[in-house]
Design a binder for these strands. Structure first.
Length: 481
RNA sequence: GGCGCAUUAGUCUAGCGGUUAAGGACGCCGCCCUCUCAAGGCGGAGGCCACGGGUUCGAAUCCCGUAUGCGCUACCA
C-alpha cells in the first residue's frame, strides 16, 4: 500500500529560491519525513514569459544546499511525471475537455481591454472586481464560429451562480476557513496561449500526482477555494490543506527585495550556513514547545509537528539570524568550518598555500558571525604584519624587549607547539618575568603587538598556533630587530 | 470597496479556563572571566497579553464587536 502522505513543493522558476518559498518547502519536507511520507518537487513554469531553466536549476541547487531532498522531481523522474508543468499539457487538456463537456467551463472571448475596463469601473463604483460572465451564455454555434474565425479565447471555470454556497475546509494550520462562492468570479483556467493557469494546473497536478496534503502560504487561501471547485467539478476527493502565515520584513510588509536579501542564494553567498538557515526558518512560525531552539535538520524531523505551526505572521529578524549563524559557526566540526572558510579567503586574494587554515579557522571562529567576515579576521595570519614605527620603538624598549626575547627563545626551543603547550609556554614566560615585576598585560600585549601589529584579536595562544612556530619566530625577530 | 487571515515586550515565541502577579531566545544594559576583541557564564531593564464588551466562581486563554496589520480580489504563481 502506498504511503498515505504525499506532499509537494511547487516553486515557479521565475527567480532564485525565496526565503518564504524555502520555509514552505522545509515545512512540507519535515511533515513528509516526520510521518514517513513522500515528497514531490514540481516546477510550475506555466508563465512562459518569466520562467527560465536557469532559475529552475538555481532553485534545485538551493534546495539541495539546504539539505532538502525529494522522492520525485524533474531532475530524478518518478512514476507521476513529467514534473514540469510545461511538459504536462496533454494532461491538462484532457481535464479541461472534461470540464468543458460537463459544462463546468466555457470559452471566453473578452479582450484584455474589455476586462480592464470592467475592472476599472467596478473599482470606481466600489464594487468587487469580478468577471461579469459576458461569455457565459454564448451559444455553442456562436462559440464555434468565433473559434473557427481564429479568435483566441480563454477557458473559464463556471462558478455556480444560482445557488451560492460556502466553501468550507478544515485548514491544518488556520483551522476552519469559510469562503463564499459569491466572491469568486469565473476564473480563467486556460490562457490564450493554451497554457493552464496556476489554479487549474495545480489542482490537476495535485490530483494526478496523488497529493494528500497541500501545504503552502496563506496568500493561497482564496486559491484553495477555487481549486476546491475544480476538485468538485472533477468529482475527485479533496486533499487536506494547510496555509502558513507570511514572512514579513521589519516594516511588517510582505518580505520583498527592498528589505534586502530575500533569496537563499544571497544568504549563502553572504556566509550563512545551511544549518543556520534551516534552523532560523524553522523558528519562524513554529516552535518545538520546549525551550530548545538550536537544532539541525535531523533533530527537526523528530521534533516537527504541523499542530505547532503558528497562525500569525513572523518578521524576519536579521540580528537573530546573525546570532544563530555564530552559534552554528562555533558548533560545526572545525574540518567543515575550514572547508567553508577557504573559498572566502581565496576570494579575498589571500594565498593560503603553506598555512594551516584549520588552525586559523579555529582561532577566528569565535570572532565571526558570517563566513564573509573570515578574511578580515584571518588576514593577521598572512603576509607581514603592519607595525607602526611608534609601536616598533616601544617594543624595542624595556620591558617589552625583555618579554619578547625570552618568549622568542622559548618558542625557538620548543619542539612541538599546540594549543596546550603554547598556553604552558606563555605561562612559563609570565612566571619567570614575575620576579622582574612584569606581569599580565605587560607580557601578553607586547607579544600580541609584535605578532599581529594590532592590540586586539583572537586569544594569543591561538594566534601563535595559527601562525606556527616558523612564522612566529620570524615575526618576533623582525619586531626585536 | 469586498472577502479572508492575524494581533503576547523592539523582534522570534511558550502559554490551549485556575499550578502564570505571563516562561524562553535575539537585541539592549551591567557584572564575571580575561593581554585585547570576541565567545562563554551570571544578572537586569522591558509586557496593563491591540481595544471594548460579554460567558464564567475564575480569561492572555472561550464568544461578539471595534481598531490595526497583512493577504487575496491578474490570460503571476
Amino acid at each position: 500500500m502506498e504511503s498515505p502522505i504525499r506532499v509537494r513543493f511547487a516553486p515557479s522558476p521565475t527567480g532564485d529560491l525565496h526565503i518564504g518559498t524555502s520555509r514552505t518547502a522545509l515545512f512540507n519536507w519535515l511533515f513528509a519525513r516526520r510521518y514517513h511520507g513522500q515528497v514531490v518537487l514540481r516546477v510550475e513554469d506555466t508563465d512562459k514569459t518569466r520562467s527560465t531553466k536557469e532559475y529552475e536549476q538555481s532553485i534545485i541547487e538551493s534546495l539541495k544546499w539546504l539539505g532538502i531532498d525529494w522522492d520525485e522531481g524533474p531532475d530524478i523522474g518518478g512514476e507521476h511525471g513529467p514534473y514540469r508543468q510545461s511538459e504536462r499539457l496533454n494532461t491538462y487538456k484532457y481535464y479541461w475537455k472534461r470540464l468543458l463537456k460537463s459544462n463546468h467551463a466555457y470559452y471566453c472571448f473578452c479582450t484584455p481591454e474589455e476586462l480592464e475596463e470592467e475592472r476599472r469601473s467596478a473599482l470606481e463604483s466600489s464594487r468587487m472586481p469580478m468577471y461579469g460572465g459576458k461569455c457565459r451564455e454564448l451559444s455553442d454555434t456562436e462559440r464555434e464560429k468565433r473559434r473557427l474565425s481564429g479568435q483566441k479565447g480563454v477557458i473559464r471555470f463556471k462558478v455556480e451562480r444560482d445557488d451560492p454556497y460556502e466553501i468550507k475546509f478544515k485548514d491544518l494550520i488556520k483551522e476552519n476557513i469559510n469562503i463564499s462562492s459569491e466572491v469568486i468570479g469565473d476564473f480563467i483556467i486556460v490562457k490564450a496561449d493554451n497554457m493552464p493557469t496556476y489554479n487549474f494546473a495545480a489542482a490537476v497536478d495535485d490530483i494526478t500526482m496523488g497529493i494528500s496534503h497541500v501545504l503552502r502560504g496563506e496568500d493561497h487561501i482564496t486559491n484553495t477555494a477555487r481549486q476546491t471547485m475544480i476538485y468538485d467539478a472533477l468529482e475527485t476527493p479533496i486533499p487536506m490543506f494547510g496555509h502558513f502565515s507570511m514572512i514579513l520584513g521589519t516594516d511588517k510588509a510582505k518580505l520583498s527585495k527592498r528589505h534586502g536579501a530575500t533569496s537563499i542564494e544571497e544568504y549563502k553567498r553572504k556566509g550563512y550556513l545551511s544549518e543556520t538557515i534551516i534552523n532560523y526558518l524553522s523558528l519562524l512560525s513554529w516552535s518545538p514547545g520546549d525551550e530548545s531552539e538550536i537544532f539541525d535538520i535531523e533533530e527537526l524531523v523528530k521534533k516537527f509537528s504541523i499542530e505547532r505551526v503558528s497562525k500569525s505572521p513572523a518578521i524576519f529578524d536579521l540580528p537573530k539570524l546573525d546570532w544563530l549563524n555564530g552559534q552554528w559557526i562555533r558548533r560545526i566540526p572545525v574540518e567543515r568550518l575550514t572547508l567553508l572558510i577557504e573559498p572566502y579567503l581565496t576570494a579575498a586574494g589571500i594565498d593560503t598555500e603553506d598555512h594551516n587554515v584549520q588552525k586559523i579557522s579555529e582561532a577566528i571562529r569565535t570572532s565571526i558571525t558570517t563566513l564573509a567576515e573570515a578574511p578580515g579576521y584571518a588576514k593577521i595570519f598572512f603576509g607581514d604584519p603592519e607595525i607602526s614605527d611608534d609601536t616598533l620603538k616601544e617594543l624595542r624598549e624595556e620591558p617589552s624587549i625583555k618579554v619578547l626575547s625570552l618568549f622568542r627563545d622559548r618558542i625557538n626551543e620548543a619542539d612541538k607547539l599546540d594549543c596546550d603547550s603554547i598556553k604552558e609556554l606563555i605561562k612559563g614566560v609570565a612566571g619567570d618575568l614575575k620576579e622582574d615585576g612584569i606581569k599580565g598585560k605587560a607580557v601578553y600585549h607586547p607579544i600580541r603587538l609584535a605578532l599581529t601589529g594590532l592590540d586586539s584579536g583572537p586569544e594569543l595562544f591561538s594566534v601563535i598556533d595559527g601562525l606556527g612556530q616558523k612564522r612566529t619566530l620570524s615575526r618576533l625577530d623582525k619586531a626585536i630587530g
